[in-house]
Design a protein around this nucleic acid. Structure first.
Length: 468
RNA sequence: GGCGACGUGGCCGAGUGGUUAGGCAGAGGUCUGCAAAACCUCGUACCCCGGUUCAAUUCCGGGCGUCGCCUCCA
């Protein structure tokens, strides 16, 4: 298995620190507002990576943080007249809802910054003790010049960065490039005690502290969005390596951005599409499929048309599963599985993997059309969809029970207590109409079912139904 | 200005020194009361200019263009 490492921009075999074990740390959200489509992409990208590593037999420990204290949260709280806890909790809840809908597995550990103030303070103290950081007026700053390999991830030249002139020259910082580890509290702001007075952590330090706590001094994989490469990940490296003297992460993986009309979605500019709304308007796993159609490292374009494409493609996968769900358990077609693994072994190339998947779908349908045995192909499709996280939870009909009953009554039928039984009775009624060649009645029933979200398909071997 | 990514058929999006990616859309056909689903057939695409090569979309150089980061950001 080969992966592309942002650090050094090399492609190399994935070799974990401890054979068979992989520790992954992914930068999660700063919980300040609803997540947008870009956040979903990052989550799905690393969820697939995680699932595939598990599929390949690695014992994976997956850590994704929640940053629940930061300037933006404080600003949002004061704007909305809420406490920062309320803002953070609400946003975190919304985030979780989207994660579940997208089929993103919960992390093994999901640490919050505010639960790790002790570890953070300790790490900052270490940095001060090692002369990599200094206190100034109640703040603590990391001294970038004290860490010679600073900017190795983003491949920048410190001296040239200064001439960029976009860096505000702070009066209390010794060097304009130095960044805050600890910020002294201003009146009314949330604060925790520290050796440097009441205050709160700077943005980058929580990741260093929590990653170290849960995964040790050296991580196998550190992931996040490409917009975090500089300065966030660069600063994490500086903090962690200055403390431990060890390489912080063996492999750095970065997902590309989601663009809207050619430009990156961004919360701060208001140029984004709300993920909660998108997921409620579409089959959530179709959105997951949308993400997987591009390689995780590439930027990808978002539009309503592209989502519609993905919904159609996803429905095709669902139709295939319905058609073949009765088949006996069989070993997955080895040729298909090999092709899938080859694609994923190549830096998690999901577009190619999807090509393999859709090839198998077409072949499976053809074999079935010709009356052959498609079980091995269907099993391969199931396997691939499982690893990619594209299989929905079985959904019952309980939420539609009332409407199904209403439809039954309209047709002069007695509702059964069980929604599915009632539905089958309705379908039976339609079949009767069809036998009598009473097309108006037949079509009216089909339309009525369609209205409540149930699709009817007349096949050679009977009538099938499924939810939209 | 610095660092990085990229320019592929109607749209999206992989990939390769000479052999079909895939999805969606479109055209025709099979099946069907209609619809849906499904299958078959159909598109010789690779920004421009040089160079290397028997052969370049794929390698090298130059140009043009787009995007990201350099400030909070998945």
């Amino acid at each position: 298995m080969e992966i592309v490492n942002t650090l050094g921009r090399t492609r190399a075999p994935l070799v974990p620190l401890v054979e068979g074990e992989i520790g992954i740390y992914v930068c999660g959200p700063t919980v300040q507002a609803n997540p947008h489509v870009g956040h979903g992409r990052s989550a799905v990208a690393f969820d697939v990576i995680r699932r595939y590593l598990v599929y390949r037999g690695f014992n994976v420990t997956y850590v994704r943080n929640i940053t629940d204290i930061d300037d933006k949260i404080i600003a949002a709280a004061s704007e909305q007249g809420l406490t920062i806890d309320t803002v953070a909790e609400r946003a975190a809840e919304r985030f979780e809802v989207t994660q579940d809908a997208l089929g993103v597995l919960r992390p093994d550990v999901e640490p919050k910054a505010t639960d790790h103030i002790g570890e953070i303070v300790e790490m900052i103290s270490d940095l001060i003790g090692k002369d990599h950081a200094y206190e100034a007026s109640g703040d603590v700053y990391f001294s970038v010049r004290s860490f010679p390999s600073y900017a190795k991830l983003s491949n920048r030249n410190i001296d040239e960065m200064l001439s960029g002139a976009r860096i505000a020259t702070g009066d209390i910082k010794r060097d304009p490039l130095d960044f805050a580890l600890w910020k002294g509290a201003k009146p009314g702001e949330p604060a925790w005690p520290s050796p440097w007075g009441e205050g709160r952590p700077g943005w980058h330090i929580e990741c260093s502290a929590m990653a170290r706590k849960y995964l040790g001094d050296t991580l196998d994989i550190h992931g996040g969005g490409s917009d975090l490469i500089f300065p966030h990940h660069e600063n994490e490296i500086a903090q962690s390596e200055a403390v431990t003297g060890q390489a912080f992460a063996r492999y750095w993986l970065h997902n590309g951005m989601v663009n809207l009309s050619g430009e990156k979605m961004s919360k701060s500019t208001g140029h984004f599409v709300d993920l909660v709304g998108l997921l409620s308007d579409n089959p959530p796993l179709a959105i997951r499929l949308f993400y997987l159609r591009a390689h995780y490292r590439s930027n990808v374009e978002f539009s309503a048309d592209l989502i519609a494409d993905s919904v159609t493609a996803f429905e095709r996968l669902m139709a295939f599963r319905r058609r073949h769900e009765g088949l006996e358990d069989t070993a997955a077609d080895p040729g298909v599985v090999d092709a899938f693994e080859a694609a994923m072994d190549d830096d998690f190339n999901t577009p190619v993997a999807l090509g393999v998947l859709f090839d198998a779908v077409r072949d499976g349908n053809r074999v079935a059309d010709e009356g052959g045995d498609a079980a091995a192909l269907a099993a391969a499709v199931e396997l691939i969809m499982g690893v990619l996280g594209l299989i929905p939870d079985a959904d019952g009909l309980t939420d539609l029970a009332t409407r199904i009953d209403e439809l039954a009554v309209k047709l002069g039928l007695e509702p059964d207590g069980d929604a599915e039984a009632t539905l089958l009775a309705v379908i039976e009624r339609r079949t009767k109409a069809r036998i009598e060649r009473d097309w108006p009645t037949s079509d009216t029933i089909r339309d009525g079912l369609s209205e409540i979200g149930i699709v009817i398909e007349d096949g050679a071997d009977g009538v099938a139904w499924h939810r939209k």
